[in-house]
Simulated scan of single mutants.
Amino acid sequence: MTTAGWIIVVILVIPVLAVLAWMVISSSLVRVPSGSLGLLMVRGRATDTALTPGPHFVPALRRKMLEVYPSVQLSFRAGAPTSGAADTELDRSGTGLPVTLGDRTTAVVGYTVRFRLVPARLREVHENLGPHGVFGFVRDETAVAVTRALRDSEVAVEDLVGSALERCQQDLRAAVAAALAENGLELTGFRLGTPDLGRTGEVIQATLRARQELERERAEAATRLARAVNDAELDARLSGTATAAWRYRETDLWSELVQRTEALQVALRAVGPGESVGPEQNRPPREQDPTTGLP
């Protein structure tokens, strides 16, 4: 090849090859957004390659695309106070779950499920659930697992109150984790809310209030007994002066009356100069209406 030919190659061919190489390399660079997982798709079929957030080099030799899934924790709330809030891509809500316990008690339970996708099983999640079916699957599988665990014959209403609630929550967490793990989801958190027991809950609260009222009556019995003994001794000492005994007890009686009637209001008429509070005949006469003659 002559010198002129080499010059043509250097000036024309090499830049063209460089441009082609740059186009191939740039099309092979794939960037996964932060907080996401990228499932590599070749000719519309999912592969076992799950790309983490950041840049990646994927040779552009075949038709490829990325299906983006979230890599952060997702949550589903059932029966929570935020159930009426707007749903987002990472957070969904639903109504409470009605269940029948092992002792035939009915209740409505609420819970919060936190989970995330397992990158190694992202292809399984894509083929079974798809990008828009994850929350629906979590809702249904969690409801089945919670219902199955609570209707066990050993579960009673006492397991949903007090310290037993924590043990019940651990059992439900294990059941939900096993249900999600079968389809490539990892449970990161489970919290059981306060169940709504309906009429049964009202009976429980009434029983607790009655028990506390009984304890209060027992605590006040000693005070009432001491007061009765004190009144008996007072009557014996002040038997000849009834007015003095009444004035001694007047303050206590007014205090008891105010405590028993919280809405009690006492209004006293202002006494003018030269007036005194006494019997009706000692009060100044009321003015009469000249038309009717009535005071």
Score class of each variant (00 low, 15 high):
residue 231 D to Q: 10
residue 206 A to E: 13
residue 198 G to N: 07
residue 87 D to R: 15
residue 228 A to I: 11
residue 26 S to I: 08
residue 10 V to I: 14
residue 141 E to C: 05
residue 93 S to A: 07
residue 250 E to T: 13
residue 274 G to K: 05
residue 94 G to A: 15
residue 12 L to E: 06
residue 169 Q to S: 07
residue 215 E to L: 04
residue 177 A to V: 03
residue 217 E to G: 11
residue 217 E to F: 09
residue 174 A to M: 02
residue 76 F to K: 00
residue 207 T to H: 13
residue 207 T to E: 06
residue 268 L to H: 04
residue 60 A to M: 14
residue 286 R to H: 07
residue 103 D to G: 04
residue 137 F to Q: 05
residue 249 R to E: 02
residue 253 L to A: 12
residue 272 G to I: 07
residue 116 R to I: 01
residue 91 D to Q: 06
residue 66 L to I: 14
residue 111 Y to V: 00
residue 4 A to E: 12
residue 262 E to W: 01
residue 235 D to E: 08
residue 140 D to M: 05
residue 70 P to D: 00
residue 107 A to K: 03
residue 182 E to M: 09
residue 237 R to W: 02
residue 151 R to H: 11
residue 160 L to I: 06
residue 114 R to Y: 02
residue 164 A to Q: 08
residue 251 T to S: 01
residue 37 L to C: 03
residue 154 E to R: 01
residue 242 A to T: 09
residue 275 E to K: 03
residue 285 P to R: 09
residue 131 P to W: 07
residue 219 A to C: 01
residue 77 R to T: 05
residue 1 M to F: 13
residue 268 L to C: 08
residue 147 T to Y: 00
residue 182 E to C: 01
residue 176 V to D: 03
residue 69 Y to G: 04
residue 100 T to A: 10
residue 3 T to N: 09
residue 191 R to K: 12
residue 172 L to W: 05
residue 38 G to T: 05
residue 40 L to M: 09
residue 122 L to K: 04
residue 288 Q to K: 09
residue 243 T to H: 10
residue 88 T to I: 05
residue 104 R to D: 12
residue 14 I to N: 00
residue 129 L to Y: 10
residue 88 T to N: 03
residue 181 A to S: 07
residue 285 P to F: 00
residue 122 L to M: 06
residue 288 Q to D: 12
residue 261 T to N: 10
residue 268 L to A: 04
residue 183 N to R: 12
residue 161 V to L: 10
residue 166 E to T: 13
residue 27 S to N: 15
residue 89 E to Q: 11
residue 208 L to F: 14
residue 15 P to K: 14
residue 115 F to A: 03
residue 117 L to I: 11
residue 33 P to Y: 01
residue 231 D to M: 15
residue 274 G to W: 01
residue 245 A to F: 06
residue 166 E to I: 11
residue 170 Q to V: 05
residue 200 T to L: 12
residue 232 A to M: 08
residue 143 A to C: 05
residue 242 A to E: 06
residue 214 L to N: 07
residue 237 R to I: 13
residue 113 V to T: 11
residue 285 P to Y: 00
residue 105 T to W: 01
residue 21 A to D: 07
residue 176 V to M: 06
residue 21 A to I: 07
residue 55 P to C: 02
residue 21 A to T: 11
residue 96 G to L: 00
residue 97 L to M: 01
residue 212 Q to H: 05
residue 74 L to N: 00
residue 126 H to K: 02
residue 292 T to D: 06
residue 60 A to W: 02
residue 39 L to E: 04
residue 193 G to I: 03
residue 187 L to H: 10
residue 42 V to P: 00
residue 11 I to Y: 02
residue 1 M to R: 04
residue 163 S to E: 05
residue 114 R to C: 11
residue 44 G to C: 07
residue 104 R to G: 06
residue 35 G to Q: 11
residue 213 E to M: 14
residue 128 N to L: 13
residue 220 E to F: 04
residue 179 A to L: 09
residue 185 L to I: 09
residue 206 A to L: 10
residue 104 R to A: 11
residue 237 R to N: 09
residue 47 T to L: 00
residue 189 G to L: 00
residue 69 Y to T: 08
residue 140 D to K: 12
residue 163 S to F: 14
residue 294 L to Y: 09
residue 77 R to F: 13
residue 39 L to A: 06
residue 245 A to P: 00
residue 93 S to F: 08
residue 244 A to I: 02
residue 47 T to Y: 00
residue 107 A to P: 06
residue 199 R to I: 07
residue 154 E to I: 10
residue 283 R to A: 04
residue 29 L to C: 10
residue 229 V to M: 10
residue 117 L to D: 01
residue 232 A to T: 15
residue 226 A to P: 13
residue 216 R to E: 07
